[in-house]
Design a protein around this nucleic acid. Sequence first.
DNA 1: TGTAATTGATACGGAATTGATATCATGAAA
DNA 2: TTTCATGATATCAATTCCGTATCAATTACA
Lengths: 300, 300
Amino acid sequence: MKFGLRHIRHFAAVAEDLHYRKAAERMNIAQPVLTRSVQHLEKELGVVLFDRTNRSVSLTSAGKVFLQGCQVTLATMEGLVSQTLKTHSGEAGHLRIGYTDFAISGELPKILKSFRQLYPDISVEPLHGVTSSQLDLIKKDKLDFGFVTGPISHEDLETKTVQEDNYVAILYDNHPLAKRSSVLLSELANEDFVLGSPSAWQHFHDHLHRICRAAGFVPKMVQHAFNSEGIFGLVACEMGISIHTSCAENYLRKGLIFKKIRDVSDTIKTISIWRNDPAFPARKAFADFLKQYPVGATQQ
Amino acid sequence: MKFGLRHIRHFAAVAEDLHYRKAAERMNIAQPVLTRSVQHLEKELGVVLFDRTNRSVSLTSAGKVFLQGCQVTLATMEGLVSQTLKTHSGEAGHLRIGYTDFAISGELPKILKSFRQLYPDISVEPLHGVTSSQLDLIKKDKLDFGFVTGPISHEDLETKTVQEDNYVAILYDNHPLAKRSSVLLSELANEDFVLGSPSAWQHFHDHLHRICRAAGFVPKMVQHAFNSEGIFGLVACEMGISIHTSCAENYLRKGLIFKKIRDVSDTIKTISIWRNDPAFPARKAFADFLKQYPVGATQQ
DNA sequence: TGTAATTGATACGGAATTGATATCATGAAA
DNA sequence: TTTCATGATATCAATTCCGTATCAATTACA
């Protein structure tokens, strides 16, 4: 099996035209070259590929099989080259993208949709994870981008804020404050709270305790859940109320009401974070895309 | 895109070992050859495939994509060569095989099963057709082998008898003769007959009329069907009786009874027939197989 | 710190491959 | 018969390819 793509190209040309001279002309080479290439193939394979009876050329059974394979191989090679070039330029590739509840219910879907329109040959693999686990994965190079709850600053890693949400109170619809158009944080001081589990929701807890402390109370947590869905479910059961971000409006669970909190101007930022490694063109493409992406804000 | 399989093989070897010298040793060539092959590829593609930082070699993103494609291409090529060789030797290929009702309910399944065990890389495509249409297809080279009702003799075409069946009477189970262990053909002289339609079953009709004439009567056909299933269905409805071959025993339809016909020693031969064209190795393999295959006889 | 070992890159000469031109052999067409 | 078309062959020049020897850079180790 000692032949190259050149022999294959020559054979395929002859096999397609069933005419040496025409094929040679089409390939801009001299005819004897094709004769030799085909002879070489036949000798290497130990198989006659053409029947040259009379003055017509026709493929043998084995020749037909070989031709088909050659055409596939040649087409595959072309595709491979183009795919390799695209990968080099960052036009193609694969990205593993982590996301939090906040990110996926906020800007991330829009970001990914918009990015994929720009780079249809880059596949994305979204992976759910809380902030800390995403950061771990990025450090271990198991994740290309994280969409996490800020603030974060980390040497070696680049960041870009992509989403900024206000705090909102989540009430069930027959709660005493449900009729109000907005609430004050201090009005919630004596409420029972349903919140995310402290370990997973560490960042959000930190923020929440800070703003509550500023309002003069410590939230009383009566129940915790592992994700936003769980929190909303428990609030809907009237186990307590919760505080979430304005991106929660995209959930719109029946029986729940979202209230703007008038006296809290702090925001929760969702930031994208990635390792700035120029060796991954697709990463660079997404990083560049993120840098110019405006900060989304779900203001109520 | 001016590179050969050689470059690809070299690149893949280096990429797999991530070590030029080891790869060179494994391929039994000198190390500089690999350096040059990879450089050539990189130059042709305009893409850096390896990061040669420090004294370690690692693939770039584009290199990984290219490697994967190269491995696929190389494996495909190997498979293609082996498939081509097999096609040449007759070990692989495709056969379009026609069959009649008699053949498919008789020896053909056994023949094909046995042949496929010998030649697992030859695919067979069974096509139902009556004798005359199979012969047409073979002449037009649209069919590789026919399994038809004999006798047939045709110049240009080779034949081999593969099956020999006795005539049997097909009765419904409350027919007056149903209790008998065997019948005489002459006893059926006044019966109503359900037979295959004369155009499609021409060969069988010819045989049947000949033996009936010898027994001194002309069968009275009251109904005809287009295939054996249809005939058996009509007999089961007691529209009449029929005469079929002993291979019918494989149908075993409820309510039907098969009776040996004592005074008829003629047989119906099913023969395989094909164009003796040495240009199709798979045909030759099957032809050789058939020639040594014993004649099957479903004697009751 | 200095010496040896390892690794990929480079230079060069001979061998093999490739391609173009001219020509041949054969069968078909005029 | 002559003429034409087609694929095969011979030959020479250009290119490509491989192996040997060697280099430069880095690491390992004493």
